[in-house]
Design a protein around this nucleic acid. Structure first.
Length: 216
DNA sequence: CCGCGGATCTTCT
DNA sequence: GAAGATCCGCGGA
């Protein structure tokens, strides 16, 4: 790892966020997830990355959301309790990973769009194809699922416990002497055809791992 | 740097 | 039957 990504704690120092963290308005959860750490422990390797970009997808009032027209076999987990994963397959090629929000019965999810790789980087590079820079391993919603091998088999997982969870750095471990500042910016969501005006995308303004901005 | 098209399959109309 | 919460490689400026 070079200076291109933050030095950071290993996954053993990361504790899962409680379910209450996700039982909030989806936009709030999306905002609050910036800077948290995604961890997936598999076959002797701990994959982890710092979340630097998210998008909120709501329910009946959000035509860009899978939950817009009500529950279907695919999206039903979005209507369930918060803190569970929702993974879907799209374009015949890609998987996208979300975290369910809101109380049970109210649909909502946060799309995890980009990470800064923290651990398991060698395995990520193998899976993404050699010769890539660290900052291009997980800087897109389908890139990070490829690096982590997240598929529909990972949909419906409880993300408040091992081995697949989102956590927070142990506060005893300080970054930059505890002086780091997080600036979160807001923008329209990427790659949608409806509700383009909603400012439901959140990202770390200083991260090199945010997915490519659309023109403008 | 920018724009374009192909890949490839699930889901819902 | 069409669109899709995407990515990559190619060709041109």
């Amino acid at each position: 790892m070079r200076g291109s990504v933050h030095s950071s704690p290993m996954a053993g120092e990361v504790r899962p966020l409680p379910r209450a963290f996700y039982e909030r308005p989806t936009e709030v959860a999306a905002f609050e997830l910036i800077g948290k750490i995604l961890v997936l422990k598999q076959e002797r390797v701990v994959l982890s990355g710092r979340i630097v970009e998210t998008e909120a997808y709501l329910g009946a009032d959000d035509p860009a959301s899978h939950a817009w027209r009500g529950p279907t076999p695919r999206n039903r987990v979005m209507f369930g309790p918060a803190g569970f994963s929702y993974v879907y397959f799209t374009y015949g090629v890609h998987h996208c990973f979300n975290v369910v929000t809101e109380r049970e019965g109210v649909p909502g999810a946060v799309l995890i769009r980009a990470l800064e790789p923290l651990s398991g980087i060698g395995l990520m590079r193998e899976r993404r194809g050699g010769g890539r820079k660290d900052e291009t391993l997980t800087n897109g919603p389908a890139k990070l699922t490829q690096a982590f091998h997240i598929t529909r088999a990972h949909s419906g997982c409880d993300l408040t416990r091992e081995p697949f969870f989102i956590g927070e750095e142990n506060s005893f471990v300080s970054r930059n002497g505890g002086a780091s500042i997080l600036t979160i910016r807001v923008s329209p969501r990427v790659g949608i055809s409806r509700a383009k005006d909603k400012l439901f995308r959140y990202y770390d303004a200083s991260s090199l791992c945010v997915s490519a901005h659309p023109k403008g």
